[in-house]
């Protein structure tokens, strides 16, 4: 399987990338390529131009920024997983990165590419939503803006990111309490059939779900119940409130709803001790 023909351009800088993206009708950003190239090989995606941003030098880093941690968008899953800083101050991010795809994928795939792809079955988007992460985006003419994770994911493979914008940095708050990311799948290599991220916050927990709708989803009902003093078992019964999980070869929507309740309870038990 071979992609349809396309033009290839290597961006030297973010501004250069934005300029290149603006110069073609259906250009796509190539970071690691592990979301895009499979679609191109099946010819479901046939961009006319790929703008390779992987050589932009300063987009791979993990560093402290006050009570936040800043992660360059081109930081590979492998490096996120092995970041001592993240392991210490935002361990859910490092742990989740270590469970994306497989080792080969983690050696190439990037945190920014994964988030920008906006696949509701992706693990990292859910963790970002639970953490209330912020995404820095660069646009034409040197403009930049910041979007909250909760607002970034707009629909199935749809993010608040224009065709000529580049996601440059992910900022996550440091966490000190309990956390859990539970990924339920048939095979280790599969995307999450259902995933649950839980992070302790002010004695309660923020909870988000993977693959339970068209975007990573905040489990608002669970959070509300917890805030009202419910125990994990009681709160988890509301896990699928507002969810619209898919039915596919891996499992039915009905089953996903039930699994989400079990996983939320287990995640809360891990998170809240």
């Amino acid at each position: 399987m071979i992609p349809a023909a396309f033009e290839y351009a290597r961006a030297e800088s973010i501004d250069h990338a934005i300029e290149l993206l603006g110069g073609a009708d259906d250009a796509k950003i190539l970071a690691g390529g592990h979301s895009l190239l499979p679609l191109m090989k099946t010819r479901l995606a046939q961009p006319s131009l790929l703008v390779d941003i992987s050589r932009i030098g300063d987009l791979s880093y993990v560093r402290e920024d006050g009570d936040m941690v800043a992660i360059g968008a081109l930081t590979r899953h492998h490096d996120v997983a092995n970041s001592e800083l993240l392991q210490q101050v935002a361990p859910i991010v490092a742990d989740t990165a270590s469970r994306i795809g497989d080792p080969q994928v983690r050696h190439v795939g990037t945190i920014g590419g994964s988030i920008a792809h906006a696949d509701p079955a992706g693990d990292m988007g859910t963790v970002m939503v639970a953490l209330g992460a912020q995404f820095a985006i660069s646009a034409a003419a040197g403009a930049t803006r910041t979007v909250a994770a909760g607002d970034f994911f707009q629909g199935l493979f749809q993010a608040d990111l224009a065709a000529n914008e580049v996601l440059t940095e992910i900022r996550v708050p440091k966490t000190s309490g309990g956390w859990s990311y539970l990924k339920f799948n048939r095979r280790a290599i599969d995307w999450a059939m259902v995933g649950v991220a839980a992070v302790q916050q002010n004695g309660s927990a923020a909870v988000a779900l993977t693959n339970m709708g068209e975007t990573p989803l905040r489990a608002a009902g669970v959070e509300e119940a917890l805030a009202g003093g419910a125990d994990p078992a009681t709160a988890s019964a509301r896990a699928d409130e507002g969810a619209a999980p898919p039915s596919d070869a891996f499992g039915s929507a009905e089953y996903r709803r039930e699994v989400s309740k079990v996983l939320v309870r287990r995640a809360l038990e891990e998170t809240l001790g």
């Binding site: 499979p38 497989d102 080969q104």
Partner: peptide, 23 residues
Amino acid sequence: DTSTCGSCTVLVDGESVKSCTML
């Protein structure tokens, strides 16, 4: 052809990658 099976694994800068999913 879908970066699942890993038959195409090579090392790039010493690390394993799937060469069927890399240009």
